[in-house]
């Protein structure tokens, strides 16, 4: 701390102490204002979810009628939703696919980011552009050609169709390269002196040191795959391999849907992620924040 800094914060403290009473009242008022504003804003974000939950408990005939609180709590809606589609299987599929893709993306991104951040080689600039290019290419544009590729590999209606196209991520490479670049060169020199191979350095030092960035990448990748809709919808038409999000679509019906059951199914689909989120909220937010996206 420099001298001038010290004097500034001293002055600050003096000012605070000079009018203790009104200052404290102003601070209390500000806190109260912030508190009520926070409550209001929270309400805006939570209200649609709350109504989904309340709607899921209603009788079909009172969804849009009667009080906002269900007159009768129809737990049967959840039972019907659960039995309406093989949700157990869907959850298993989503979980399996999301986990494999997440692990793979972390691995492939780490490897590529390591090369881009720590090595000098011929054609590096061009290869880097190739590695980041997918960021700019709208993925849905590639649906049909990719579907044809999947068919040619004989992968239609199988796990590889849901997994293989997503095994690497341009965003992941970008993110981890940023993080790896900030890690000091001395660590690498030290480990080389200890006789570690580049791979050992990557897995034993570079990746653990950058755990926040890796966990951010994991969270975002997992969410992206778990919530994906269009590709799984196109690539899969058998229940055995269908994912949760596609399964959710089977509750709407051309001639009118059973809205409470649809809402119950939606609640079931949201629930596991929300439970994980509520328990790991701090980790989620810290991860997203430390994604190295701060520029």
């Amino acid at each position: 701390m420099t001298a001038s800094d010290k004097s500034a914060s001293d002055k600050y403290r003096e000012r605070h102490q000079s009018k203790p009473y009104s200052r404290r009242r102003a601070a209390a008022r500000a806190a109260w204002l912030q508190g009520s504003l926070s409550l209001l804003v929270s309400l805006f974000f939570v209200l649609p979810l709350l109504f989904m939950l309340l709607g899921a408990f209603k009788q079909q005939r009172e969804v849009f009628l009667g009080s906002f609180i269900p007159e009768q709590w129809v737990w049967g809606n959840f039972l019907e939703a659960w039995n309406g589609a093989p949700f157990g299987r869907y959850f298993f599929n989503s979980l399996l696919v999301s986990i494999i893709v997440t692990v793979s993306v972390v691995l492939t991104s780490s490897l590529a980011a390591f090369a881009f951040s720590r090595m000098q080689f011929f054609g590096k600039g061009l290869l880097f552009i190739l590695a980041l290019g997918p960021l700019m290419i709208p993925g849905d544009v590639l649906l049909i050609p990719n579907f044809i590729t999947i068919r040619q590999f004989g992968w239609q209606n199988s796990y590889p169709a849901l997994i293989v196209p997503f095994l690497a991520s341009a965003f992941g490479i970008f993110l981890l390269r940023q993080a790896f670049l900030k890690t000091s060169q001395e660590l690498e020199d030290a480990s080389r002196i200890d006789g570690a191979t580049p791979l050992q350095f990557l897995f034993r030092i570079l990746m653990p040191v950058n755990a926040p960035a890796l966990s951010a990448l994991s969270v975002l990748t997992f969410l992206g795959i778990w919530n994906a809709l269009v590709w799984p919808y196109i690539a899969i038409s058998k229940d055995e391999f269908r994912t949760v999000q596609v399964g959710l679509a089977s509750f709407t019906n051309l001639e009118g849907s059973n809205v409470p059951v649809v809402l119950a199914a939606t609640t079931l689909v949201i629930l596991p992620v929300m439970v994980v989120y509520i328990f790991a909220q701090k980790w989620f937010i810290d991860s997203a924040a430390s994604s190295g996206l701060k520029g």
Binding site: V41, F45, N227, L229, L248
Partner: peptide
Amino acid sequence: AAVFAPVVISVSATAIL
């Protein structure tokens, strides 16, 4: 918790609700 919650929800669920 509230502000970040919608981020973890899928587009299809968001649309339904």
